[in-house]
Design a protein around this nucleic acid. Structure first.
Length: 405
RNA sequence: GGGGGGAUACCCGAGUGGCCAAAGGGGACAGACUGUAAAUCUGUUGACGUAGUCUUCGAAGGUUCGAAUCCUUCUCUCCCCA
């Protein structure tokens, strides 16, 4: 039923950073094959925000790969760990969420993770189930498994510590909780981004302490966000959500710096490596390559057809400078009008192209505002809105006026 | 418990009585160019119907003709000592 360890290893090793340790993994794979028992592969998701993006989808895809190899996916929804807030890779204390918010997010996480995983064959657990029952005594025992020195060794903590930034005590508990999860669900393997390595290793200690064979830790790369610089994250707004509209997804992918194409190709698309290498060779124009990449990303979460359409739409707007197929309508009611006219600044605010008058004026002064293809240069202008007129701001914001009087 | 720092716009960070709506960088937005929402270059980035006026530098009071800057109290935070 299971493939050879070697064959499995090949699949497992694609697009990952590190295995701790590979030998242990091979042993586990061999044992699993011999005994015909699937390995338990754990991934913890903290539902701290309502959306999954293509960066944090990377380990989820890896989990799916394990499912396809016949292993058991154990998905932990970190409803309690999310309340604590993962300190990994951040330079400040995360805001603590209410348990209520977390549960709300958890549902959307599940819906979204279901796009990647085979949920039918996923063991789904909430870590609040055990954490809320843990006694204080047990918590104390848990905290005794690690020393302060080791905690402070961590890059993120040591950086914060030496830069004089605050570190709250509860943040030390986070990796212990994550490690304790591993003990409870008795997993053989845990997946996580490279920033999770510390927590994954703590899991090994805690499992060992609990009399278990320690899990194998597998880390996946972190994906830089759209700015090409910082890690993709919801709070930085530099992300592509996996449920985003195809056109939006395509456009965002196209806005990536060229240098990141290889990484995105590898981690965010399903294209085979030789195809990717072909596209990245000097024979292919970078723009063409990037379009293929954007298409592949859209295909992964929508369909090939959606991807193709998104490409056509993109060219239409940005290459041919034509109007998009769907333009949001903005209704102008009679009480928006004075003597049948509306001040252009008001109109821009009405269309949500500007938050303040100054904002709107700036856009006009900078030459970024067009009405039916005519540049508007006068910020005092009052216009008589025509039904169906197209207001354009910048390169990619459009509104169709719908006048109701 | 004692002593000494720090808190500045979306973020980081300069500014230690008027020249401060506050340098610089990042981000964001706009323009030019192009190969795209790449790269590069330029500009803009508190509010107000465009005029000067108003509100901003952790919070509240105070000193002063005038306060981000000085004083008092408070909140949060970092370091050192115990």
């Amino acid at each position: 039923m299971f493939k050879d360890a070697k064959e499995q290893l090949e699949v497992i090793k694609r697009g990952i950073v590190e295995i701790v340790s590979e030998n242990e993994l091979i042993n586990k794979l061999e044992k699993s094959k011999k005994e015909n028992t699937p390995l338990r592969v754990k991934l913890g998701l903290d539902p701290t925000a309502p959306d999954i993006h293509i960066g944090n989808a990377i380990p989820i895809h890896k989990l799916r790969a394990f499912q396809d190899l016949g292993h058991k996916a154990v998905l932990i929804i970190g409803d309690y760990t999310a309340v604590v807030g993962d300190p990994s890779g951040v330079n400040k204390t995360r805001p603590q969420l209410s348990h209520e918010d977390v549960l709300k997010n958890a549902q959307t996480y599940l819906d979204q993770a279901g796009k990647i995983l085979d949920l039918e064959n996923t063991e789904l657990v909430y870590n609040g189930d055990w954490f809320k029952k843990l006694s204080f005594e047990e918590v104390i025992h848990l905290t005794s498994t690690i020393t302060v020195a080791r905690m402070l060794e961590r890059d993120d903590f040591s950086k914060r510590y030496s830069s004089g930034s605050p570190i709250s005590l509860h943040e030390f508990i986070y990796p212990l909780m994550q490690g304790y999860d591993s003990l409870v669900v008795k997993c053989d393997i845990e997946l996580g981004g490279t920033d999770q390595l510390f927590s994954l290793l703590i899991g090994r200690d805690i499992q060992r302490d609990g009399g278990m064979e320690p899990q194998v830790a597998i880390t996946t790369p972190l994906l830089e966000g759209l700015d090409g610089n910082k890690k993709m994250s919801k709070s930085l707004g530099n992300y592509i959500g996996i449920t985003e509209d195809p056109n939006e997804m395509f456009g965002k992918a196209m806005s990536l710096p060229d240098e990141l194409m290889k990484k995105y190709f590898e981690l965010a698309t399903d294209l085979p490596m030789d195809r990717i290498n072909g596209l990245l060779s000097s024979e292919t124009h970078p723009k063409k390559a990037k379009m293929e990449m954007a298409k592949a990303i859209v295909s992964r979460y929508h369909s090939d057809e959606d991807a193709e359409n998104a490409l056509v739409e993109f060219d239409k707007i940005f290459k041919d400078h034509k109007l998009p197929t769907d333009i949001p309508e903005v209704t102008i009611a009679s009480n928006d009008l004075k003597d049948g006219k509306i001040w252009i600044v008001e109109l821009l605010k009405k269309c949500e192209f500007a938050k303040t008058n100054g904002d709107a004026r700036r856009l006009i002064v900078q030459g970024g505002v067009k009405m039916d293809d005519n540049k508007i240069t006068d910020h005092a202008l009052a216009i008589e809105p025509e039904n169906g007129a197209i207001l354009k701001v910048g390169k990619r914001r459009f509104a169709k006026l719908s006048v109701k009087t």
